[in-house]
Design a protein around this nucleic acid. Structure first.
Length: 287
DNA sequence: CTTGGGTCCTGTGCGC
DNA sequence: TGCGCACAGGACCCAA
């Protein structure tokens, strides 16, 4: 999936399109994504004016004038395509592939006032959409257990140390746990651990306070750099239509098995499997 | 309680 | 060129 930076980039792309506009029509082209769409999904959205576009963890939150929130998750392979009234289209932080006109996986179309439309595409259908009342949001099952945002003040070394204390599993698994910190995924966990010089296999509870103090800002830095890269791709989004949304040219370890460590330590990047997911790391720089 | 594995689904890329 | 297999950004669910 798009991880936090990609979802943030998508939100920034959607914000000026949605905000203040009426959702005139919603076309749902299949009965479900990961789960069935809620009852009366389209009807509950149609005629509503969007007041705000935001993000929590990897969820896109589109707040409506009636204080309901359209919740969108992109799963592993979701992307959003925007059709402009003049016929141009672009994909903010598009992922996975350029459909090249293949619309088989265009599952939902939001038609907005003024001729704009927003198309949700997700080949693997691990994504989801739901509608949640603003007053129910905090306690909603999707959000009740989600941990602090990594870019916010609540996520700090003291907090993380507390959460890792006593944990025996590898640090990598814990950073992927959305209840500990929201929004990290497989790529940026690998990247952050590399930047912090921490082995992905280190037992979470044994990492010293000093190293956690280094890890927290490295997580932030990796995410912020990726958001910046996404933001710059937004500026000329029309010409980058169809390009990969992950900013992989700047990954230091992810998907670089066998390549030389960029720290020039002489070691090669290794790939291992943890909890069924690939982990990339430098065996020399990360301990 | 924590932890690990299987699962949903389609598409891509590799080796043979 | 074709086929089969491994693997892919997530996260839920259940067994141990």
């Amino acid at each position: 999936m798009p991880e936090l930076p990609e979802v943030e980039t998508v939100c920034r792309g959607l914000e000026p399109i949605f905000t203040g506009r009426c959702i005139e029509r919603v076309v749902v082209r299949r009965p479900n994504l990961r789960w069935p769409f809620p009852d009366q999904f389209a009807t509950r959205l149609e005629g509503q004016i969007v007041t705000k576009v935001g993000r929590r963890a990897k969820y896109i939150l589109i707040t409506l004038g009636n204080d309901e929130i359209l919740v969108i998750h992109l799963g592993m392979s979701g992307s959003i395509l925007i059709h402009e009234p003049d016929g141009n289209s672009h994909r903010p932080a598009s992922l996975y592939y350029d459909s090249g006109g293949d619309d088989r996986h265009d599952h939902v179309v939001f038609e907005l006032e003024g001729g704009w439309s927003v198309i949700y595409n997700d080949p693997r259908r691990f994504g989801l959409m739901d509608i949640v009342s603003l007053k129910d949001f905090e306690g909603h099952r999707l959000f009740a257990k989600i941990g602090p945002e990594p870019l916010g003040n609540e996520f700090n070394p003291a907090y993380l140390s507390t959460r890792l204390n006593g944990r025996k599993g590898p640090i990598k698994s814990h950073l992927l746990d959305q209840s500990i910190v929201a929004g990290l995924g497989n790529i940026y966990v690998c990247e952050a651990l590399f930047q912090a010089g921490i082995s992905p296999q280190a037992r979470a509870g044994t990492i010293s306070g000093k190293r956690v103090e280094r890890l927290v800002p490295e997580i932030r830095a990796v995410l912020m750099a990726a958001i910046d890269a996404g933001g710059s791709s937004l500026n000329d989004y029309v010409q980058t239509d169809g390009e990969l949304g992950y900013f992989q040219h700047q990954f230091k370890v992810y998907d670089r098995e066998g390549e030389s460590c960029t720290n020039d330590c002489g070691a090669q990047i290794k790939r291992i499997v943890q909890a069924g997911r690939s982990t990339f790391y430098c065996p020399k720089c990360q301990r």
